[in-house]
Simulated assay, not measured.
Amino acid sequence: MRALIRREVPLAVPAAAAWEYVTDWPSQSDWVPHTRVEHADPAAPARGVGGRIRAWSGLGRIGFWDTMTITSWEVRPDGGGRCEVLHTGTVVRGEGEFEVVADGPDASRFLWSELAVVPGGRLGALGWKVARPVIERLLDQGLAVLKERLEGGPEEAARA
């Protein structure tokens, strides 16, 4: 089974500022709930096609690594951009996409989508029915923090 989650949040900041912030992978630890994001290979850049990142998702020592490889990277002249990743871990598998769309000189939208492979057949599908609203709520909370950090100005984002 494959499951699709999409989220969108309007931002009162230029697309370039939003793009820079959402693709600064370690800063995602500040707004993605219960997740620590880092470069999979500190010696290699994690921007552009072939870049690799990983995210520890969980509480304390209980959790899992979500490993990702960037499969598409586009930066637009208006400051927006799109990044697609392939989740290659043992728990999370599938595709993800981040996109920042310019809505004028001082406004943008951040779009997040995940097309995940839900393992476990019928049992996995049943588990997904329970987990989906929890995951969606966590994502919504994270996007609210992202919006707050970006719209709070450089001082707020720097504290993040």
Rank of each mutant, 00 (worst) to 15 (best):
R36F: 11
G96Y: 00
T90N: 14
I62F: 15
R82V: 07
H39M: 01
T69D: 08
V101E: 07
L126C: 13
E136R: 01
A17I: 02
V37H: 07
L4Q: 12
E99C: 08
E8C: 11
R47H: 07
E155N: 13
L86F: 06
Q28I: 01
P33N: 07
V85T: 12
H87V: 02
G58D: 00
P154H: 04
G121H: 01
P10W: 04
M1E: 10
V85F: 02
C83V: 15
I70M: 05
D41S: 09
S57F: 06
R82H: 04
E38M: 03
E20W: 11
E114L: 10
D78L: 07
R47P: 03
P42L: 02
P133D: 12
A17Q: 14
R82Q: 08
L123W: 15
R122W: 15
V100T: 03
L123M: 15
L146I: 04
E95D: 08
A3P: 03
R36D: 12
E148M: 07
P133Q: 13
L123A: 15
A131P: 11
P10I: 05
R137I: 06
L150G: 09
W25Q: 11
P45Q: 15
A43F: 01
P133Y: 15
V145H: 06
T69E: 15
E151H: 07
D140H: 09
T88N: 05
L123P: 06
K129L: 13
T67L: 00
D106R: 12
A3S: 13
S113H: 09
G48I: 10
E151C: 03
R61E: 15
A17K: 11
A144G: 11
A158L: 05
M1Y: 04
G94H: 04
D66E: 10
G142F: 10
V101N: 05
G48K: 11
L4S: 08
D24T: 14
G96E: 00
V75N: 10
R109V: 13
A55M: 13
R61H: 07
W19H: 09
A157I: 06
I53W: 02
L139F: 09
W112L: 13
Q28H: 04
G121Q: 02
L11Q: 10
V130S: 08
T71A: 01
M1R: 09
W25P: 10
I53C: 02
V9R: 05
D66L: 12
E148Y: 00
K129M: 10
Q141C: 03
R54S: 05
I70D: 04
E99P: 04
V9T: 13
V145Y: 03
